[in-house]
């Protein structure tokens, strides 16, 4: 049942490193952390009655990317015309409450964390705060780690940001 504490520590370190790459805008390095068959998705939330079923609409996605489209997003940020991120957002990814469970495959682990992203732009002190339940599958590959699947469930039904030109 339990995961070896050493493995858990490695995975935590991996996720903190990943957050650092995002906050330092090292996207070309960040994308390398994703497995070739990775998926990156964020389903939408709606406001529903408590007993009326899940408030996550699985067919509706804010992000629905594979490794290839995720890389296109990174490439886009590398062009001179990605106005949404030029000047860039100042982001800070807070990755907490990390829970690690064994995955379906021997070399995979299910990792769930609470994610809080602070985002500020321009010369105003205004900021967006995006809070999410993040669910990853991380895979041991050649002694390192890759993200095989990422699911970001935002804690908002109306996203409180004028766009999502950042990664979560």
């Amino acid at each position: 049942m339990g995961v070896d504490p050493a493995i858990k520590a490695e995975i935590e370190e991996f996720l903190l490193h990943e957050a650092e790459l995002l906050d330092e805008r090292r996207f070309e390095e960040w994308i390398e952390l994703f497995a070739e068959d990775a998926r990156y998705e964020a389903p939408m939330r709606v406001t529903k009655a408590r007993d009326a079923g899940p408030d996550i609409v699985e067919e509706s996605k804010i992000f629905s990317d594979n490794r290839e489209t995720l890389y296109i997003r990174v490439q886009r940020l590398g062009t001179e015309f990605a106005w949404a991120e030029d000047p860039p957002s100042r982001t800070r990814h807070f990755v907490t409450n990390i829970r690690v469970q064994p995955g379906d495959k021997e070399n995979e682990y299910r990792v769930r964390c609470n994610l809080l992203v602070y985002r500020n732009r321009g010369d105003t002190p205004d900021y967006d705060l995006l809070s999410a339940d993040r669910q990853d599958i991380v895979r041991r590959v050649d002694g390192g780690w890759k993200i095989a699947y990422r699911r970001i469930v935002l804690d908002q039904s109306t996203v409180g940001s004028h766009n999502l030109s950042i990664f979560l």
Binding site: A42, K61, I62, F63, I72, R73, R76, F81, A82, W83, A84, E85, V159, H162, N163, L164, S165
Partner: peptide, 13 residues
């Protein structure tokens, strides 16, 4: 969509 690559730049402008 909300994270759409074209959408992003419109809203920035």
């Amino acid at each position: 969509g909300a994270a759409g690559m074209f959408e992003q730049d419109d809203f920035e402008n």
